[in-house]
Design a protein around this nucleic acid. Structure first.
Lengths: 303, 303
DNA sequence: TCAATAGTGTCTGTCAGACACTATCGA
DNA sequence: TCGATAGTGTCTGACAGACACTATTGA
């Protein structure tokens, strides 16, 4: 322990003894989990491949505020609990999964984002393989469900200003679990003033319904992060089971990016990230696909 | 306002009236600002170009804890203040700059990161052009200074485990303001268990000195973010003045990436992001360089 | 045989890496 | 003239986009 004294002549021990952490009112802190997985639609035709979809786990709120609306799973951080530990605890509570890919996404800190009190939320993004989710989420009393995500850019506008420009992008987020269909429109504003750029996200309330708090922003931001990272990291493999075919992998890339990819180009691009197995997947009246697995050493190649 | 009632039969107004936000102990929340700029060493020889350096603003702590050590500028978030507003206020206090590039970097939430109390810190990264900083930081009583950053990867090791691997990377961070030289070694661990990856940063205390709190982690993370973003965004231009030569721009890229770039390749790569002016910079016994400025419309090209 | 999916070969254009070359200034 | 920095031209190899082609299965 440090024996230097401060301007009041206190050592560190003395300083800590007289320190009052409750001098000013403090916000509450929560963690929220944006949990993505990939599902397949039921296959109607045995000759057709099932279509994959990007899904997110939502919890129906049973109490105020936003009662009856859908929210990301999450909860308060305990005073003696690390932030990551809190996020892992929430994930475990919802999915019963111990090890999943998880990263911090964004910290939401607008003053009035929660009508109860000043609550700052540290949003995390997690990815899981659907096959690990046999234990269905929502084992406790709350109503939990998977929602298919649609993410469309509706309109982009650019206004040149005196010393920069403003780009406004309107994004329509549509979620559906078969019964309910919450949606939101988010305005992403990129404002350049000289060399400084500021990006802000805003929910348009007149074009939004059924999603609690500012959670639509988190979903949008998570999709954007996924889209960026899928291009230059192996993040997509966190959504895959141990064995997969290259077509399945390509479908996951396609639903994340929201566009179709050319088959030969895709295969060449990811060839060094996968290892061929000698098992095949027979699925109908067509050539069976080889199973592949992830190559954890793909990054070592240069070494 | 919502007139639905919850399980206790309360409307939202009634619920909010009885809600007690102080039921559980709450952490304090701060914002910290990792402020980068680019400087040039004094030029000894008129025929040599001045070397550029990446610099970060640090404040010498005048009180416990970590008294006498160097810390990122920052402070507590007011209860009625948005998170971004708090970050901008801190930046303004330190640099007197209103508009600078700023983005959220990471939220630090380990339980014992601050000996005073449970304090969660939302770290932001800001970039400013050195020429805007004529009003020197640290107008108040505190001692503030710019430190040149050196960032070296010391050692990388990979251990294969039962169902994955562990990659350990040791990063040596050395800061210097001419007089003092705080430093830190950070162990970045990438642990893959099956398909799940977890990245953790850890400060090695025996190989670290003079940096307060876990701020060395923030600096490391900021450099990593800069390195990633400089490759596929225009983020580096936030460090540039209005007019600059391509050599100056290349130097900024080089100090961020920590490696030399080939001149023709660099110029072709950034050609569409800049606009030529017809001014030139005369600087010594050699051909004068053309001044360029940022092209804010470079992203529109496809449209 | 055919529908459907799996998978390969190859052309082309773009772009980064590499290097050789030219240009312009002041001492 | 020379040292120093600015800037261009062009070859090459890697790789993504595009498309034509072959392979394998069960109905």
């Amino acid at each position: 322990m440090n024996q230097l004294t401060n301007q009041q002549g206190l050592t560190e021990a003395e300083f800590l003894a007289q320190y009052n952490p409750n001098q000013y009112p403090k916000p509450s802190v929560t963690v929220d989990i944006l949990l993505f997985t990939v599902s397949e639609k039921a296959e109607e035709n045995t000759r057709k491949l099932p279509e994959k979809e990007l899904q997110v786990l939502l919890i129906k709120r049973g109490d105020h505020p936003f009662i009856g609306q859908w929210a990301l799973p999450g909860g308060f951080v305990n005073i003696g609990e690390d932030l990551d530990t809190a996020a892992e605890r929430e994930l475990k509570e919802e999915t019963n999964i111990d090890h999943a890919y998880m990263e911090q996404l964004y910290t939401l800190g607008a003053v009035n984002r929660d009508p109860r009190a000043r609550i700052i939320s540290v949003a995390h993004m997690a990815l899981v393989d659907r096959k690990k989710l046999n234990v269905l989420a929502g084992s406790d009393a709350r109503e939990a469900d998977w929602f298919t995500v649609r993410h469309e850019i509706k309109r982009v506008g650019k206004i040149n200003t005196e010393n920069g420009y403003i780009i406004e992008k309107f994004i329509k987020l549509t979620l559906t679990n078969g019964e309910e269909q919450p949606y939101a429109t988010i305005k992403v504003t990129k404002n350049r003033i000289g060399t400084a750029v500021k990006v802000t996200r805003e929910i348009i309330p007149e074009e939004s319904q059924g999603l609690a708090f500012d959670h639509a922003k988190v979903i949008d931001q998570g999709i954007e992060r996924l889209q960026n990272k899928v291009e230059y990291t192996d993040i997509a493999f966190n959504l895959m089971p141990e064995r997969f075919t290259l077509t399945e992998l390509q479908q996951v890339y396609e639903i994340i990016l929201g566009k179709e990819l050319l088959l030969p180009a895709f295969r060449k691009k990811i060839a060094h990230m996968v290892i061929e197995t000698n098992e095949t997947k027979k699925q109908g009246a067509n050539r069976p696909a080889k199973y592949y697995r992830f190559n954890p050493s793909w990054e070592d190649e240069g070494i």
